[in-house]
Every structure is written in C-alpha cells, then in structure tokens.
Design a protein around this nucleic acid. Structure first.
Lengths: 336, 336
DNA sequence: CCGGTTTCTGAAATCGGTTTCTAAAACCGG
DNA sequence: CCGGTTTTAGAAACCGATTTCAGAAACCGG
C-alpha cells in the first residue's frame, strides 16, 4: 500500500503538501503542485490510511452500537436504521452485543471507547448507571436506545410505551372487554416493561375498570412460560376474555396457549400483541399488534448522536419519543 | 485520557518500559520497575490507545462484515454467530450493508480496508469479482458467506442448497406428489438460487418425473408477486398439488396465495418452505421448512477467517459446506 | 581488581498521517 | 531596483504507541 511519503516522493514535493490536497486545503497552493500531486495519487492508487489519520485527528469516523440481542428482528430493524443513517453521514458502525448482561455491556463500552469510536448508541441493561454517568462527565457522546433511566439524564430515543399499551388496552375495552389479561416479562427496572404495564393500568382506570393482579401475568423468560400463563388466564374462575401480550415471543405463546386450551382466537379469546413483522398478518389468526417504528428509532438515534458529536458546546440531554401505531387485524372480537 | 507518557512520567521510567509491561515483555525487567509501572497504570486508570497500537502494529483486531440486508432475520442470525465468535477470539466487528448493490459493495470493501480491518466476511453480490480477485492477489484475508463463485477461488462458507432443495422435493414426491411447483426469485447468477432450482430438478429427475417449465415460477421481488405465482400454479389446466417455496417471503406469499384462491393447506395444496424461525410453527398451518444453520454459518465464517488471518503462509482456499435440515410440520399431505 | 557476561533500561526511530512555523520566492508600488 | 507584502511549500513537531539499539549497572570468574 502506498503511503503519503510515496506520493510525496513521486510528485517531488513534501508530504505536507500532499496532506494539504488530501484535506482540500488549497489556499496558497500553486495549480501546478496540486495537479502533480493528484497525478501521483492516481498513479499509486493512493488512499490515506485512516488509522493514521484517526490518531492525529482524534476521530475515527466510527460509531459504536451496543445491542442486547442482534438476532432479535426488532433490533435488527433498528440496526438497519442506524446503519443507513450512519453511512449517509459518513460513519462506519461497530456492532457489539451485551446479551443483557451488565458486565458484557461494560466490557463493550470500554473496548469501543478504547477503539476510539466517536460516539456510542446503547440499548442499556440499565445496570451500569455509574459507567454512563462517568461518560457524561467526560463529555463522551452517547445516546440511549429504547430504554430510559430516570436517574441519568442523557440523550434518549424511545417509543412511547405507555401510549402503545394504552391504545391497545383501550381498543379491547372499546370492544366490550372487562377482563383483560396482560402478559409480560419480569420488569427488572426496564422502562419499556414498566411503561407497558403502566399504560395498561391507566387505560383500565380511565375506564373505571379494576386492576386485578390475577390478570397480570409476569412470565419468566424460559420457553413456553407464556403458554402456561395464557392457560392460567383462561382457567381463572372469572377468566380473561382478552389478552394483551407485550412482546413478540409472548404474542406467539399467547396464540399457542389459547390453541392448546381449545380456545379459538378471537371467538373465545381476543389477543392483541406487540411489535409487527411481515409474517404477523400470516399468523393464525392474523394478529392485531402495536407496531413500533423500529427503523425510525435507529435513524433518530444515529441522527441525535451525530448532532451531539458535532457540537463543541454540549447541548442539554434531549429525549425523542416516537409513537407506536395500533394495527388492527383479526385477532380481537367482542366478548361472548 | 492518560497516555503512555503520563504513565511513564508518574512511574519515573521511560515509555519503553511501560510498553514492555503492556506487552507482557517481562524478561530482563526488575520486579521493582514492573510494580511501579503497574501502580502508575492503576492510579491513572490507564488503557492503551488502540488506534496508536494499530498504527504501529498494523493490525486493528477488527474484522469487517458486509451483508446484503441486516434486517433480514436470516442474516441477523448469521451476524449473531459471527459476532459471538469474534468476541470469543478478541475481535471487534464492523458491519456494513451492500443492499445487494455492486457499487455499495465495492465502496464498503474499500472503506473497511481503508479502516484497516484485519479481514472481511462478505455476502457478495457476485458482481465484483475483479475486486475480490485483487484482494486474493494482495493476500488480504476474506471469506465469502453463503454465496459461491465458480470463477473465484476463495474461502467460502455455505449451506448445501442442492441438498436442501432435494430433500424437500423428495419429501413431497414421497407423499405422492407429481405436480410440484417451485417459487423462486430471479436467479441473477446467485448460487443459492441456482442450487435450489438445481436440487428441485435433480429430485424430480431421479424419481423419473418430468421437469415442467410451467411449474417453475420465477417471481420478481415486488410485493405479492409470490401470491400471484401461487394462484397461477393453482389455476393451471393440470394444477400443482404441492409448492416448494425457496425463501421466507415466498413462503408467506405461497400461504397467502393459497388462502386467496380458497385452497386449504395442506388438504388442497401442500407447501414446503425455506428457512425456519420461531414463529414459523405458529403460521396457519404450521409450515414445514428447510431450516438452515444460520448461526453456525456465521460462527464458521468467523472461524475460517480468523484461521486465515493468523497464518503467515496462506493456505489453499477452503470451502465449508453445512447441511440444511428438513423440519416437518403440518403443511404437507398426500395429494387428493 | 579487572575484563567479560548478563541484566536492566532509556533514547531514538518508526508507523502514516496533520499542522504549525518559517523561510524562500514571487509580486508590487514607488 | 528596493523594501514590503503576498504566495507557496518544506522542515519539524506531534498524535500514542512499539521496537531496536546501545549503554549503564550488576554480577562473576580468575
């Protein structure tokens, strides 16, 4: 690979001059030297070594993203948004995965920082507030993705989960349901879970309906726990007539659970889920869901980060809240 | 951020010595200096700047991956495998997306190379053989992912598509089907498509069944083109009694098309698809598919790349072929 | 006690760029 | 033709590490 010195030698100039044309710094440069250098570059097929540039410029034109689970289609859609915005603005993406583990998350932040990424997008576990606190103190640019921490003020892009839960629950209420179960994963201090439960409760209360703990099913994340929870909801002495499921896995398990219990959806039990994918309309029955703007979430996160990175004066933390959309298909009906 | 000079100063030694402890180069180092330096590092909370290290060592401990579509769940599962193997062996991942475009692919290869990634994993468009030819000539380590190019000998990890198509077609034949349609996207010189069609044909021929062009439906990639193709297969004067669909989208469209035509799966028409996901068993009906080991594909690609990167003597190109697995559910039945 | 090893450490060069500083060359008005 | 200004471009320092080379100190046998 040709270096700046090779170019300088071939063009018969100093490397300072070559560097100048690399950086488009043409004021005070004779036309002749410029073309000489351009020619030499061409001939040697030269591209500046960006590691060397990064060292001097203290910027790698790279941003890092830490995601809990890349293979989750929600996150991969988010990643696509981030990716596309990054290439648009000239950044390369380093991707790593925390697998929801605090230690992994910390490790990832550290290696990415050490690799000098210019900024970080993090779907945080929420268990490393000290670490992120430290980051804001050193003015290291980062944005939180899809999870919000009360204690820590930082740029955040999030989907309004209260609203999503409220809309779906309200929709069930409007159909006449009074016994609405909710399926969720352990709260673990995670804002989307907190908020979806909160939205569900708010909708009930606003409609004068009681919040019944029997109907709130916290499932562990082992396989099929949602199936069991669904069956339990159906076997209550005063059984649920509708189920609000708060994530993709639980959506599927709710459907399975109902089937197992011999209940038809939506005739015997209504189900409304969370997250939408191309295959959701092809489920049995086509599932109504709360669709989140995953791609936009990614785009906005990248946009916000880039904005912060380009500021010398650090602006106040900004929270961008996107709206989910209720998509009605055929999995809900009025109770019998 | 503390630099090696700060540490040296604080410990009262030269940076050479600090560098020595960084690299575990302890022979000929007095115990005292070592502990002094270790202490200074501790106190300053020092981590070596890896950009500087990369410049000198000519290695970034980073590998790049270029994928056609990150939001495609198949690829995101592959990515997960790559990711996990990379972290296991101490590499960071740079991800970029070609969106199936040759120019984008070239651009990505160039920027990643320029960022000095130590190696590349590429799900190539197949339209840049010159570029990759060049790479093998400069001994730049890379491996092809899931697509094979006859003309270019390079490390490749792939799933045996002929086998996958053969197995699924054979399964349909075994059930008594003679009119088996195949749904695929335009070949475009892409080995998975070529091979799946080839496997289908081979299975037919080996069973003495004719290959009927009427039954081979090349769908364009616009939305719903698979639905139309399915309907056409069902409206043939001698209609198809089974359909082999060769990718996820077409799987869904085949199911939709049958539904639209008023046909029940599997009673009126059998469908077997390609690729498996957690939600596939919950389709209506639970779809039988050819499952590809996506995660293992990723792991193997990373493994192969790392192996090549670590060799000084470049070994001959190696082709790893994984086996797909036929997963039987409820979407196929003998013809009426 | 002296010359030769062995042990230990620092100075300096290097990686491939950017940037500052300075000086030579060109230009220009009087 | 001369002094001052403007162009132009190179030398050198620097970014933060690694590595070579060489010299000082300690050690050791005779």
């Amino acid at each position: 690979m040709a270096t700046i010195n090779d170019v300088a030698k071939k063009a018969g100039v100093s490397k300072s001059s070559v560097s100048r044309v690399l950086n488009g710094n043409f004021e005070y440069m004779a036309e002749g030297t410029k073309t000489k250098i351009l020619h030499a570059m061409e001939e040697l097929n030269y591209t500046p070594n960006s590691v060397a540039q990064s060292l001097k410029k203290k910027s790698t034109e790279t941003i890092g993203i830490i995601i809990s689970d890349i293979s989750n289609p929600f996150w991969s859609e988010v990643l696509k948004g981030v990716q596309s915005e990054c290439t648009r603005s000239g950044y390369t993406l380093m991707v790593s995965s925390s697998e929801e583990k605090a230690e992994k998350e910390e490790e990832n932040v550290l290696t990415l920082k050490n690799k000098q990424v210019d900024g970080l997008i993090v779907n945080t576990t929420g268990k490393n507030n000290g670490l992120f606190d430290h980051l804001v103190k050193e003015k290291y640019p980062f944005v939180f993705l899809d999870r919000f921490t009360e204690e820590l003020k930082a740029d955040t892009v999030i989907v309004n989960n209260i609203l999503g839960a409220k809309r779906s629950t309200q929709y069930l209420i409007d159909q006449g349901h009074k016994r609405i179960g909710i399926l969720l994963y352990p709260i673990e201090n995670r804002s989307p879970r907190i908020d979806r439960l909160e939205g569900y409760k708010q909708a009930l209360q606003e409609n004068g309906l009681p919040v019944d703990d029997e109907l709130i099913k916290v499932c562990d994340t082992t396989k099929d726990s949602g199936i069991k929870a669904t069956q339990e909801l159906l076997e209550l002495s005063d059984p649920a007539t509708a189920i609000f499921s708060t994530n993709t896995i639980l959506n599927l398990e709710a459907l399975s659970g109902a089937k197992k219990e011999g209940c038809h959806v939506p005739e015997d039990i209504s189900v409304i889920g969370y997250d939408d994918y191309p295959w959701v309309p092809l489920l049995d029955p086509p599932l109504s869901t709360v669709a989140q703007p995953a791609y936009e979430l990614g785009v906005n996160a990248a946009l916000l980060l880039v904005k912060r990175m380009n500021r010398k004066r650090q602006p106040k933390p900004k929270i961008i809240q996107l709206e989910p959309e209720l998509i009605i298909r055929e999995s809900c009906a009025p109770p019998k």
